[in-house]
């Protein structure tokens, strides 16, 4: 199905498929077996999921707990700019904001990462030297994922070479929805290999499921398992370019998946909801969900991230309100 860039290039030998972790070694032995495994996952009770998040959403988080939640949420933000009009200057100003989100208050924690397109990863890396802030780059023909595998892998290698510490890849939703699960699996495995960095740990791989296009929560659960079996370090809800993006029921299903996957295999996978989280209230609802579904082990920036751009300003406004005791306004935070 995939085209090669150079028609005269010798065909690469197809290596044997990398097996998933035990006890799931044999599930990828054939397309039929993999389909049987993914479709054998327990179905999601959609009404139950919605009512569970509705109940958790009513938790009242106030005063010191709220202050903790706001600081934790800030430290989990993947500050994102994914516009066609992005420039090196815009990425540098975003990096400055990532290092010091609120210049008026040095106690504000820095964010977890800056998320940009692959060609700007080098600019971001340079602007973030001497910090613990990671550079995340979207790759694999983001956001649609419609390109041949050779192009996608070249995209990943380029981003890694530019200095990206984390790669946000999109899955081939067309193949997933058509039931070609092994194609999707093989692609994630190949991208994971392309994340290798000489002399360093490989770049972290975040797998974007684009749940808005997967339609059902059952599909979200299957795609989550598929991505984890293939070796993704994080599973991410969406690109932010499709509506609906990150919703609480979707996040609930993904958190259940990482919890169950760790119980079965011992490997912990992170979760990153992205897109549509704009207010502190939304962010705190997500934190409550993480704590109640996956557990407090996930309540760190290593295992939970919030992909957002405008969310950070709202978190800062709420933080200022808690610090000063009066309401702040948009004049008191930077325009992105």
């Amino acid at each position: 199905m995939t085209h090669v860039l150079d028609p005269d290039a010798p065909a690469a030998a197809i290596p044997p498929r990398r097996e998933p972790l035990a006890p799931y070694r044999d599930v990828t032995r054939s397309d039929a077996a993999f389909r049987a495994f993914l479709h054998g996952l327990p179905g999601v009770d959609q009404v139950g999921a919605e009512s569970r998040v509705a109940v958790l959403g009513t938790r009242s988080i106030k005063t010191t707990a709220k202050a903790w939640a706001i600081d934790t949420a800030i430290s989990m933000v993947d500050l994102t700019t994914l516009e066609g009009a992005d420039t090196p200057g815009k990425v540098r100003s975003l990096a400055a904001k990532a290092r010091r989100p609120d210049p008026g208050d040095p106690t504000t924690p820095p964010v977890a990462a800056v998320c940009v397109y692959g060609d700007l990863a080098g600019v971001a890396k340079e602007a973030l030297t001497c910090t613990d802030i990671s550079v995340a780059a979207v790759a694999t023909a983001f956001p649609s994922g419609r390109a041949s595998r050779a192009v996608k892998l070249a995209d990943v290698r380029d981003a890694v070479a530019n200095g990206a510490d984390e790669i946000d890849m999109v899955i081939d939703r067309g193949a997933f929805l058509a039931g070609r699960y092994l194609d999707v699996y093989d692609e994630i495995v190949a991208v994971k290999e392309a994340c290798a960095r000489p002399g360093k740990d490989p770049a972290h791989l975040k797998v974007i499921l684009e749940t808005g296009e997967l339609v059902t929560l059952d599909n979200v659960r299957r795609a989550s398992w598929l991505a984890m079996l293939a070796g993704g370090d994080f599973i991410k809800t969406s690109t932010g370019k499709v509506s609906p993006a990150a919703t609480l029921p979707v996040c609930l299903v993904m958190l259940e998946a990482v919890r169950d996957f760790r119980a079965a295999t011992g490997r912990q996978v992170g979760v990153k909801p992205a897109g549509g989280i704009r207010t502190t209230k939304d962010a705190i609802k997500h934190l409550v969900l993480v704590n109640e579904v996956a557990g407090p082990d996930w309540l760190t920036p290593d295992w939970f991230r919030l992909g957002a751009s405008s969310l950070l300003n709202d978190l800062l406004l709420q933080r200022q309100k808690l610090r000063t005791g009066h309401y702040s306004g948009p004049d008191h935070v930077s325009v992105d």
């Binding site: 005791g325 009066h326 309401y327 702040s328 306004g329 948009p330 004049d331 008191h332």
Partner: peptide
């Protein structure tokens, strides 16, 4: 008092 103190008023 909340409106008087509000930074965006």
């Amino acid at each position: 008092p909340w409106l008087a103190e509000h930074d965006d008023v």
